[in-house]
Amino acid sequence: MADMVTIQRQMDLTFAEINYLIRLMYATEDEHTKNLTLNQMWNKIAHLQFLNQLLVAASFQQGQAAIPLQNSPQTMLPDSTNAPTANNQMEFTREQLAQFTGMNGQPAYVAVNGVVYDVTNNAAWSVATHFGLSAGRDLTQEFASCHTGQQWILDTLVPVGRLIA
């Protein structure tokens, strides 16, 4: 697990990115740019929530008291079979991932390269679909065929765990 200093640095960087995006919102009059910027801010806030969960877990490991956030990825899981691992990552089988379709109040998760991402509040995944692809699946091949060399896209998503065989 990342140490608390590393997590705090990541949080500081994310806050700086959010401040930049807020200034960009004020500076632009183009509605399309404003919508893209707002979507980026939502993603950064979700990333902060994830980093906070890591910080909480790290503080518990070091014996410090912390209060976990409500509605974090760990508290939204349907059962305890996905308990956090020693690395504080959730492990998902393909069958478990298939439960996270964004329907019936469940979050929308997708897997790419073994990492499970939350796309619930991502504008590109409205109604838990993206160009005919649906959430709750491993989309490694689809991502590679459409977004080669575009790792930055995955960096805008909140990782919630890893896909296991």
Rank of each mutant, 00 (worst) to 15 (best):
L97P: 00
T37H: 07
A46I: 04
T148R: 03
G102S: 10
N122S: 12
G63Q: 10
D79R: 08
V5W: 00
T28V: 11
L36K: 15
Y26E: 13
T75D: 14
T28Y: 15
W125K: 03
S80P: 00
F100N: 00
L139P: 02
I7T: 05
W125E: 00
L55E: 03
N88D: 14
R94S: 14
I18E: 04
A165K: 14
T33S: 10
Y20R: 09
M1S: 14
Q61N: 12
N88M: 13
P68F: 03
N52M: 08
A57E: 07
M90K: 04
I22T: 13
T37V: 08
D79H: 15
Q96Y: 05
K44T: 11
T148N: 03
E29K: 11
I67V: 11
L51I: 08
L54T: 07
M1N: 12
P78H: 08
N121T: 10
S126A: 13
T129H: 15
A65T: 11
M4W: 10
P68G: 07
S59Q: 13
Q61V: 12
Q151L: 09
L13T: 08
L48Y: 09
P68W: 04
V115S: 12
D155Q: 14
P73D: 10
A58F: 05
A108C: 08
A144T: 03
L133S: 07
A123F: 06
Q64S: 10
